[in-house]
């Protein structure tokens, strides 16, 4: 039996010389087309069609109403703020356990926690922040009872730009930690020592060597964080209902109830989201290519 199989293997091997290798990724290609690429392209096409399917730019023009523009603007602001602040804080925390001289045992729990926190998004995250910084939340009550400080009298509101940003940081910071830690590990100790022996201060080393080396990774992660926040629906929806008009929520309510009275405007709205994440990635690829001339 086994003997026959060995003999049988030869013709199979010979047949495989035919250029049919590509057949192996047909299932994946079909999946990607049906459930990722075609739906996206279909929406993009829809953004340029009127109700009868004819080409039009009217949907795009219709985006430029004050309310929709305001939605894009607040979305971009929240995404950018949470990406930049989260990126910075994540970088600092990753730096403390990699190059900050902390003992080795700190690192593993922090990384595990970052793994958990980066996936603790969506609706439960909103609940946690409502329970903490909401009107009757723990921290709000604590500040009131102990310091007599009324958080909400300062104009703070969890259902606002800053509230949303602070909440998003809960998954943005850990994501940054997870991605940037390997990059920080890649900084060789000898580079710092070589710089010092050449007379460079710590600051000069960071400015001239370490940051340029980290730049592509930093940039890539910030863009990823931006896209991550920009497309997030669940946390914002559970936190604010539809009271804060960020783009994903406008789109969400539009899909659910057609509040814009115009499905094609919905496609344009989605198209706008793709354009913004696409452009941010384009900027990233362009900057990365410029920054990485020294890489293989």
């Amino acid at each position: 039996m086994a003997h026959q199989d060995v003999l049988a293997a030869h013709p199979i091997r010979a047949r495989r010389r035919l250029p049919l290798d590509w057949l192996g990724i047909v299932p994946f290609a079909a999946f990607a087309l049906l459930f990722l690429i075609l739906p996206t392209l279909n929406l993009i096409a829809g953004a340029f069609q009127d109700r009868d399917g004819a080409f039009t730019l009217q949907n795009i023009v219709n985006l430029f109403t004050p309310s929709i523009m305001a939605a894009y603007w607040i979305s971009i602001k929240v995404s950018l703020a949470s990406a930049l602040i989260g990126g910075f804080m994540g970088f600092v925390m990753a730096a403390t356990v990699t190059i900050g001289g902390l003992p080795g045992w700190v690192r593993s729990p922090l990384m595990t926690f970052a793994g958990v926190a980066s996936n603790f998004a969506g609706i439960p995250l909103a609940f946690a922040f409502l329970a903490t910084l909401g009107r009757t939340g723990l921290l709000t009550a604590f500040l009131m009872n102990v310091f007599g400080f009324n958080l909400y009298s300062t104009g703070f509101n969890l259902l606002s730009f800053w509230g949303l940003t602070i909440t998003y940081l809960f998954f943005q910071i850990p994501l940054m930690i997870l991605i940037i830690t390997p990059a920080l590990d890649g900084l060789k100790k000898e580079w710092a020592e070589a710089a010092a022996s050449l007379g460079a201060s710590r600051l000069q080393y960071w400015r001239m060597v370490a940051l340029p080396i980290l730049w592509p990774a930093l940039l890539g992660t910030i863009v990823l964080l931006f896209a991550n926040a920009f497309g997030a629906v669940a946390t914002a929806y559970a936190l604010t209902g539809s009271s804060l008009n960020i783009v994903p929520i406008v789109l969400f309510t539009q899909i659910r109830g057609d509040v814009l009275q115009d499905p094609n405007l919905g496609y344009a709205l989605a198209f706008g989201m793709i354009v913004i994440t696409g452009v941010s990635n384009g900027i990233y690829i362009w900057l990365r290519a410029r920054a990485e001339r020294w890489l293989r």
Binding site: I37, T40, N42, L43, A227, G231, V233, P248, A270, I274
Partner: peptide, 29 residues
């Protein structure tokens, strides 16, 4: 198909870039 690797990897990373809400909207349509 090692030559296809960058393209396959690119496709696998797309879901990080295209918001889920956009894709599901595409499904519905």
């Amino acid at each position: 198909l090692p030559g296809l690797r960058p393209y396959v990897e690119f496709v696998t990373l797309l879901p990080l870039v295209i918001p889920a809400i956009v894709v599901v909207f595409g499904y519905i349509r």
